[in-house]
Amino acid sequence: MTYLEASGISIDFPLYHAESRSLKKALLGKVSSRFSVDQKSRPVVQALRDISFSLKSGDRLGLIGSNGSGKTTLLRALSGIYQPTAGTLSMEGKLISLLDPGQGMNKELTGRENIRLRSYYLGLSKAKSQAFEADVIDFTDLKEFLDIPVRNYSSGMVVRLAFGMATAFPPEILLMDEWILAGDAAFMAKAKKRVEGMVQHADILVLASHSPSILAEWTNRLIWLDGGRIVADGAPMEVFKSYLPRHDFEELLRARS
């Protein structure tokens, strides 16, 4: 049974200024800290505070909030990249996170070589990696660009490749950051079709975005983050009602109807 559960997750981000990161500062700091009260008084940003929610098959969660509200940090925590400072993350299901378009890709390698690397990362057998490669090539539609280094791609092409690789074997849990918007309209339609197919297979999607229309369209639950805390959690339109300025909300309603 696929599920994703966050219980009381908090993350403190250590703050290192260019100088305080240096060894000299730390050594000198240790000496002088004998005179201070608390040795562990390190500056931190409270990136996430006591985040709890539970997702089950078919849930499509949207994350919304201003810049720096903790959306990306939460996605990283849910991916298991950041070990929480407090709380527990538990899940069952194959998870893929699309946090940054270039992630896991070597920009110097060609598209095809990157696809091969990814199939090694997924630990696929030879037959499966061929099917994987064929599927990604078919989806991304990069044609002759497949054989040139990824650094020569447009940002839209990178997104297409990253999305194609992430969803070729449909993950049971897909985490996405907002850069998906970098694709053109034709790609967006394709991507949406693919994610819908995924969700029909009773899977979980978590999507962070600034775009109300995308979130309203793609998700069936919305969490509003502010300052690393959950402000509101509920049906997308309900949350939007309090999140969006009145004018924007009415516009969204009109667009939806």
Binding site: T2, S10, G80, Q83, P84, T85, A86, G87, T88, L89, S90, M91, E92, G93, K94, L95, K128, A131, F132, D135, T167, A168, F169, P170, E172, R194, G197, H201
Partner: peptide, 17 residues
């Protein structure tokens, strides 16, 4: 997509503080 991998217990993952 053509291939669908079955989920199994080995996809279970837990990360606590």
């Amino acid at each position: 997509p053509k291939i669908h991998q079955k989920s199994s217990a080995k996809n279970r993952y837990k990360l606590a503080a």
